[in-house]
Amino acid sequence: MKYTKPLLSLLAIVGIGTVHAKGSLENPKPGDYTSGISTIYGWNCDASLIEIQIDNGGRIKVPYGSQRADTESTCGDTDNGFVTQYNFGLLKNGEHRIRLYVDGVEQNDRTFHVSNLGAPYIRGLKGSVLVPAFPDDAHDTTLTWSESTQNFQISKVEPSGNYPSPDFNGIWRVENSVGDVLFQTTAGYIDGKPWLTVSMLDLDYNDLQIFSGQIEGKTATVDDEYSSFDTAFEMKLINSSKMEMTVLHCKPSTSCNIRAGEIYTLLRQDGREEK
C-alpha cells in the first residue's frame, strides 16, 4: 500500500497527457506549402487555452470551442474545434516552424513552407490560370486571383476541352504581305475568360503593336487599345501550323495601309508540325 499515492500521481500525469494527446493541429500539415491569408486550425477534446507559436515569435491565443461533429466519437462531444486566421504574407519565403500549445504544454511541432509575392498585402492584381485535367481527367479547373485572401481561388470547374487551344500559342510570319511582319500569340485567361494576346512586330519599321481579345472556340477577335490607330482583327486557327487573320477595321482609313475584309495567312515559325 505504500506505493498507492505515487501510483495515483503517476496515473494523473498519464491521464492529463492522454487528454492533451486527443487532438491535432490539422493545418498547416508538416511540409505544407502555404501563402496569402489562410487559416490555422485543428481540434482538441478538452482544453482551457490553445496557443500557437510561429518561429520564435510570441504565442498567439487561438479561439477554441467551435463545433466539430467529426470529433464526437473520440471526445464524446462536438465543441472541440480551434481556428484562427493568419496572413502568411507577413513571413519571408522559405521554411518556417509552428508549434501548438494546449494549456501551456507543447503538443505539435512541425515545419512548413511559405511562398508569397513579396509583400504582406498586394492590391490591384488580376489574373486567372487554368489547371487542365483537375480534379480528374474529365474536368478542368480555373483559378482566379482573390485580393481578399491574397491567393488563387477556384472560380470554375467545367468539362475538359473548354480551355483555349494550345495551338494558339506560337510565333508566326505573314505569308502574303509585302512587308516583313512577325506575330507572337499567347492564349490564357483574364477574369476567367479565354483570352488571346497578339504581339505584332513590323521588322521593316521596328514597330511593335499589341492586340488582345476573347477567344471563342478556334477564333479570337482582337483589337489594339494602345496606339493612335483603331484596328481589329479576327484570328482563326486553320490547323496547328496555319492561321488566318481577317482585317475587321482600321481607323482612320486615310492613315491605314490595310483595309477591312483583307485576309492574311500566318504560318507557324516555331518548328511545330501540322496536325
Rank of each mutant, 00 (worst) to 15 (best):
M1V: 06
M1F: 07
Y3V: 03
K5D: 10
L10K: 15
L10I: 15
I13A: 13
G17N: 12
T18H: 07
T18D: 03
V19N: 08
L25S: 05
L25E: 06
P28V: 00
P30K: 04
G31Y: 00
Y33W: 02
Y33N: 00
G36K: 07
I37V: 11
I37C: 04
I40L: 07
C45D: 05
D46T: 09
L49G: 15
L49T: 15
E51V: 09
I52D: 12
I54M: 01
I60E: 06
I60T: 08
K61S: 11
K61Q: 11
P63Q: 05
Y64P: 06
G65V: 11
Q67M: 14
Q67R: 14
E72H: 11
E72A: 12
V83E: 00
Y86D: 05
L90A: 06
L91E: 00
K92V: 01
K92N: 02
N93F: 00
G94F: 02
H96V: 02
R97Y: 05
I98P: 05
I98N: 06
Y101G: 15
D103K: 13
E106W: 09
Q107K: 15
D109K: 13
F112L: 00
F112R: 00
H113R: 02
N116Q: 14
L117M: 10
G118H: 07
A119C: 11
R123S: 09
L125I: 10
G127T: 04
P132N: 10
P135F: 01
D136C: 06
D136V: 05
L143F: 10
T144S: 05
W145N: 12
E147A: 14
N151Y: 04
F152H: 04
F152L: 09
S155V: 13
S155Y: 09
K156I: 07
K156P: 02
E158C: 04
G161M: 12
Y163L: 00
P164T: 12
S165V: 04
F168D: 09
G170Q: 01
G170D: 01
V174F: 11
E175C: 00
G179K: 13
D180M: 02
L182Y: 05
L182N: 08
T185E: 06
T186F: 00
G188K: 08
G188F: 11
P194E: 14
T197M: 02
D202I: 14
D204R: 11
N206T: 09
Q209H: 12
S212M: 03
G213V: 12
G217Q: 08
K218A: 06
V222R: 13
E225T: 12
S227T: 15
S227G: 11
S228F: 10
S228A: 14
A232L: 11
M235Y: 04
L237I: 09
K242N: 03
K242W: 00
T246Y: 10
L248P: 07
P252E: 06
P252D: 04
S253Y: 07
I263C: 15
L266D: 08
K275F: 01
K275E: 02
